Amino acid sequence: MPLDPTLIEAFTPTGTLRASINLGNPILANRDAATHEPFGVSIDLARALAQRLGVPLELVVLDTAAQSVEAVSDGHADFGFFAVDPKRGETIAFTAPYVLIEGFYLVREDSPIRSNAQVDEAHNRVAVGKGSAYDLFLTRELKAAQIVRAPSSPTVVQTFLDEGLEVAAGVKQQLEADAAKAGGLRLLDERFMVIRQAMGVARARGPQAAAYLADFVEAMKASGFVAQALARHGIAGASVAPPA
Rank of each mutant, 00 (worst) to 15 (best):
Arg196Phe: 00
Asn116His: 07
Gln174Pro: 00
Ala177Pro: 01
Val171Glu: 15
Arg191Glu: 10
Asn116Ile: 09
Leu138Gln: 01
Ala133Trp: 07
Val128Ile: 12
Ala127Phe: 02
Val148His: 02
Asp178Arg: 13
Arg140Lys: 09
Leu106Tyr: 08
Ala117Val: 13
Leu142Glu: 02
Leu175Arg: 09
Arg191Thr: 08
Leu175Ser: 12
Arg191Tyr: 08
Gln158Val: 08
Val156Phe: 04
Thr159Arg: 10
Asp110Cys: 01
Val107Phe: 05
Gly170Val: 12
Ser111Phe: 08
Ala179Ile: 10
Ala122Ile: 13
Asp120Phe: 04
Arg191Asn: 11
Gln118His: 03
Val107Pro: 01
Ala180Glu: 15
Ala179Trp: 07
Val171Ile: 15
Gln173Met: 14
Ala177Gly: 04
Gly129Lys: 04
Glu163Asp: 13
Gly170Tyr: 07
Asn124Asp: 03
Asn124Val: 05
Phe192Met: 06
Ile147Asp: 01
Glu121Met: 10
Ile195His: 05
Ala122Thr: 10
Asp178Phe: 06
Ala122Cys: 00
Ser152Thr: 14
Val107Leu: 11
Ala150Trp: 02
Asp189Leu: 05
Ala127Glu: 01
Glu166Ala: 14
Arg108Glu: 13
Tyr134Trp: 11
Val126Ala: 04
Tyr105Lys: 08
Arg125His: 13
Leu187Val: 13
Gly164Gln: 08
Val126Leu: 01
Asp120Val: 08
Val126Cys: 04
Asp110Thr: 12
Glu109Lys: 13
Ser153Thr: 13
